[in-house]
């Protein structure tokens, strides 16, 4: 099976019903994408599938097909992404384990909604659990990222 991951085509030998998360982590060594629940409840495993945030822990690798997968390792291809800059600025992370997923979901959010409201943030981010409780700074950082993104587009 061939998968498009972070701009390159990777050969994968694992059976097609293996969740994409474990292909990424165990076969391809892309361990930035995390395992938190295995049942689409926490968002730690979030990747982009053609730009859309997707829970890789419940997605059979074979079902990815030709769609392009972006992981946290591929988010900053052209220099730090707006969300990463904002995350540094707002000093968001604590243990950090949920943060790959938070960043991937947030990046997709500001792509879809360049000026997200607090309600948009609630709707988009409530699937991403943070046991350290970084939510307040995640929210702050998303507003900031939206500004950074707009500034860069000007």
């Amino acid at each position: 099976m061939k998968l498009h991951i972070n701009g390159t085509v990777r050969d994968v030998e694992e059976p097609g019903d293996t969740p994409l998360l474990w292909v990424l982590r165990d076969e391809l060594g892309l361990v930035g994408t995390k395992f938190g629940c295995g049942m689409a409840q926490c968002g730690a495993c979030t990747v982009h599938l053609d730009g859309k945030p997707t829970r890789s822990c419940v997605l059979p690798a074979a079902s990815v097909g030709d769609r392009h997968v972006t992981t946290i390792e591929g988010l900053s291809k052209d220099g730090p992404h707006a969300v990463q800059k904002a995350w540094l600025e707002a000093d968001v992370v604590q243990c950090g384990y949920c943060q790959s997923g938070q960043l991937m979901t947030a990046a997709a959010l500001i792509e879809a909604k360049p000026d997200p409201t607090d309600n948009d943030i609630d709707a988009a981010m409530s699937g991403n659990v943070c046991r350290c409780g970084t939510y307040q700074r995640v929210r702050e950082a998303i507003h900031l990222a939206a500004k950074i993104r707009k500034g860069a587009a000007k």
Binding site: L30, G32, Q84, W87, V93, G96, Q99, L103
Partner: peptide, 18 residues
């Protein structure tokens, strides 16, 4: 600001799981 932010925002921070 935290010293461990850079590696925790680009997926390179290593946890036991990794």
């Amino acid at each position: 600001k935290r010293l461990d932010s850079p590696e925790k925002i680009d997926g390179t921070a290593k946890f036991g799981m990794d």
